[in-house]
Simulated scan of single mutants.
Amino acid sequence: MVRNILRKLLHNKAAMSGLAVILLLVFAGIFAERISPHDPYKVDLAVKLLGPSARYPLGTDQLGRCILSRLIYGTRTSLYTAMTVTLVILAIGVPLGIIAGYIGGAVDNMIMRLADIASTFPSSLLALAIVGIFGPSLYNLMLVFIFLWWAPFARMVRSSVIKLKETEFVMAAEAAGSRRISIILKHIFPNTLSPIIAYATLRIAAVIVHIAGFSFIGLGSQPPTADWGVMLNDGRQYISSYPMLLIWPGLMIVVVVLAFNLFGEGLNDALIPSSEERAIVKETGGANV
């Protein structure tokens, strides 16, 4: 099975292109201190708004900071935030989805009503409320996404578990007297991994876009943090005189989101054999709460 999945991925040029970009960005984020040509926070007004040169490959911003260095450090910020949020919502949504689908009854009803409540909150309004109470910060914004986005994972896993409960191997394990926790760990959870992995990859791209968007309007990362959304906000007033301040971070967001979407679609096709399940993951993964 693993060989078949790898074969499908290796033959999917779009997915492999996306994976190559992701690995390159992860490498840049991990080794940002070593590969950045300059300190991304060093202000030098004597060299502000310079064009590309040997010293500053992508030029400098309005405070004389190296644009390339800030983009590299922004990669670390975006990927760290997106992966952290995705891991936490997986840790919340997957167990709740398994419990709801396997136990059913009143427990299922209660968890799904909680998911309904989480899904009714628009992310922008909830972010404004949290920021108004606790102040603008990236961590407060991460809490908003965690609160909202565990619900789609829980629903998707619950749907898979309900189908798995009717399979012969699960019913055989129940008839043999296996404990519920043993059945879940040995038979249920491993067979729900495929849609979870595919959807999580797509969700990372959505988190990156939302983080950049909220940082752009001042609700996420705050200046002088090297963040793509902050860089877009800083460059707004120079859109006519020095548009590269907006083009570079905007291009980075497009490239990263495209890479994760291409790789996520490739994983979706390779991991999930059912066309119905693929459609569910694509529809859910492309939706923005």
Rank of each mutant, 00 (worst) to 15 (best):
F169R: 09
S182E: 08
I247F: 11
Y238E: 01
P152W: 08
D234F: 10
D234K: 13
T201Q: 06
A205N: 07
A200L: 12
I197Q: 03
S240I: 13
I208D: 03
I239D: 01
S159H: 09
N233G: 14
V209Q: 09
A175N: 10
A200D: 03
I196D: 01
A172V: 08
Y242V: 11
A205M: 06
R158A: 04
P152I: 12
A226E: 00
L185D: 01
A206Y: 02
L193A: 12
I211V: 15
Y242A: 15
P249E: 11
H187A: 09
W248T: 02
P243N: 07
A151H: 09
A226P: 08
S241G: 11
A226L: 05
I188M: 00
A175Q: 09
K163L: 06
G177C: 04
I188A: 00
D227M: 04
S194M: 08
V207T: 10
P152K: 14
W228T: 15
W228M: 07
G177M: 06
P223M: 03
A175D: 01
S215V: 12
P243C: 06
Y238N: 00
A172R: 11
T201M: 13
I197L: 05
I162Q: 08
I217D: 02
P249W: 01
S160Q: 12
P223A: 09
E174R: 13
N191L: 04
I183G: 13
W248L: 01
A212H: 13
M244Q: 10
A154W: 00
M156F: 08
L245E: 03
N233S: 15
S178G: 04
S159T: 15
R158I: 06
M231A: 09
T201V: 09
V207H: 11
L164M: 11
P224A: 09
K165L: 02
V170T: 14
E174K: 15
I204E: 06
L246C: 10
R180E: 04
V170L: 06
A172G: 10
H210F: 13
L245A: 11
Y242R: 12
E168M: 06
N233Q: 15
T201L: 12
S215I: 07
I204H: 05
V230D: 00
A212Y: 07
G235K: 02
L251F: 10
P152L: 07
S215N: 11
T225H: 07
R179A: 14
L246P: 07
I188T: 00
Y238A: 03
S160D: 02
I181V: 11
G220D: 01
A206T: 09
I204K: 10
K186G: 01
L219V: 11
L251R: 05
L219M: 14
H187Q: 02
A198N: 07
G220F: 09
F153H: 14
F214E: 02
Y199M: 07
A151S: 08
L232Y: 03
Q222D: 08
R203H: 07
R179M: 11
I211E: 12
A154V: 06
